[in-house]
């Protein structure tokens, strides 16, 4: 019986550590928007970190390409540097899912860069945080 309680599908108190894709894919700032789009298609991802000499200087999502290039009729041959978001929104790997969702809602974004100490170590998306599969890590084997 459920005892009047709903099954706990989303555990919002978990650290985002469990959800972070620790596989952040980068692109050099001088590359073209078309190259960025190709990379997103190739790896089936929706964002890339933009790097210059090894450090992250910006961020670009598929939405940026749609809004800032395609819809405006711009040439996809322009560099990613020209359309990237320079203000990096980062959160620590140890904040909770709830806190990350709050930041996303407040800033109206779907991607967060994730830091551990001083390093950017990955990315977490809204889809990752709402993935029920990742919330239930365990199989019902036995109680004790």
């Amino acid at each position: 019986m459920l005892n009047g309680e709903l099954p706990k599908m989303y555990d919002l108190d978990q650290p985002i550590r469990n959800f972070v894709s620790k596989r952040l894919i980068e692109i050099e700032s001088y590359r073209t928007v078309q190259e960025a789009a190709k990379k997103m298609v190739e790896f089936n991802i929706s964002s890339l970190a933009v790097v210059e000499e090894g450090s992250i200087i910006g961020f670009i999502t598929d939405g940026d390409i749609k809004r800032k290039v395609v819809a405006e009729g711009l040439d996809p041959g322009i560099s990613v540097e020209e359309i990237m978001i320079e203000e990096l929104i980062t959160e620590d790997i140890d904040i909770t899912v709830q806190e990350a969702l709050d930041t996303m809602t407040k800033k109206n974004i779907k991607h967060l860069l994730v830091t551990e100490g001083t390093d950017v170590v990955g990315i977490v998306t809204l889809t990752d945080l709402l993935d029920i599969k990742r919330h239930s890590l365990d199989t019902y084997i036995s109680r004790e």
Partner: peptide
């Protein structure tokens, strides 16, 4: 050997509390 739900949750909870 077995690590049932109770102990699985113990590991999960402590890892959560000491995530950093």
């Amino acid at each position: 050997g077995r690590v049932g739900m109770v102990k699985f949750d113990l590991i999960k909870d402590i890892l959560q509390k000491y995530t950093d």
